[in-house]
């Protein structure tokens, strides 16, 4: 199988369409089982009581917000390195989903903070750097829409996305580097999880579900982006001049 042909947006379009239902079904199943375990089976937490159940959406959303930003920046980097249009389209398709998960992470964090800390918001390092991530997503999206020339828009927003990656380790390690109100990581790559197995199972299922959901909606969005861009009148074709003028 010749995979390189799928670097052409219109060749990738039907392949993406075939993948969307699979990722959607897996996402729905994982989220359904995750919600069932997290809300109905898992017992209450000894110190945070039932407010801890917010982590079943908060932590997966926060992880996705950081992960999607890195993936977006990588696609933008590939786009700039290989001058590949589909890569920029992927970067463009990821940004709104990443922004949505950042927003969800922030709002559910407020909902967790009020009963736990007694305040919805505090300017500690973790919360502030995550808020900056939301502004970064907004900046990447706004910069793209503010430049008419698609190739310049791709490059400018790609550079902004790549530079902004510096914030991701700041968010992740903020709870270690600074004395934050936000608690430290409950789950990390290097240490045993500091939570009960049943709670961890629910959280990982929700994370997997959000991940599969992200792939499904990003593929759906990149199909829209492909349609929107590829159906633009050909700028180099003189016979399309009236259409070009109309599109401007």
């Amino acid at each position: 199988m010749n995979w390189s042909k799928y670097s052409a947006p219109l060749a990738f379009y039907p392949l993406a369409g075939k993948m969307i239902p699979w990722f959607s079904v897996v996402a729905a199943l994982a989220i359904a089982v995750g919600l069932y375990i997290g809300l109905l089976v898992a017992p209450t937490d000894a110190t945070q009581h039932d407010s801890y159940r917010i982590i079943f959406v908060h932590v997966p959303a926060a992880w996705m917000s950081m992960f999607l930003y890195v993936v977006m920046a990588i696609w933008a980097g590939i786009g700039m390195g290989l001058n590949a249009r589909l890569s920029f389209m992927m970067a463009q398709a990821i940004a709104p989903t990443g922004a949505m998960f950042t927003f969800i992470a922030l709002v559910t964090g407020c909902m967790w903070g009020k009963p736990t800390w007694g305040t919805y918001w505090v300017w500690d390092a973790r919360l502030t750097s995550e808020l900056i991530l939301l502004f970064q997503y907004a900046g990447v999206m706004l910069l793209r829409t503010s430049i008419d020339d698609l190739r310049r828009a791709d490059r400018a927003s790609g550079v902004l996305a790549l530079v902004g990656v510096v914030n991701i380790p700041i968010i992740y390690f903020s709870v270690q580097w600074w004395n934050t109100l936000h608690q430290g990581a409950s789950v990390s790559m290097t240490a045993a999880p500091k939570m009960a197995a049943i709670m961890l199972t629910a959280m990982l299922l929700m994370t997997f579900g959000f991940w599969m959901y992200s792939i499904a909606v990003i593929l759906a969005r990149v199909r829209c982006v492909i349609l929107e861009r590829e159906s633009q009148p050909a700028w180099s074709n003189p016979s399309a001049a009236p259409e070009v003028a109309e599109a401007r």
Binding site: L39, H49, D50, S51, I54, V57, I104, T108, M111
Partner: peptide, 16 residues
């Protein structure tokens, strides 16, 4: 009721 935390828990899940 979520042990008295219903407002915060359900707001989080509904917003998501």
């Amino acid at each position: 009721a979520m042990g008295g935390y219903g407002l915060y828990v359900w707001t989080s899940f509904i917003i998501t």
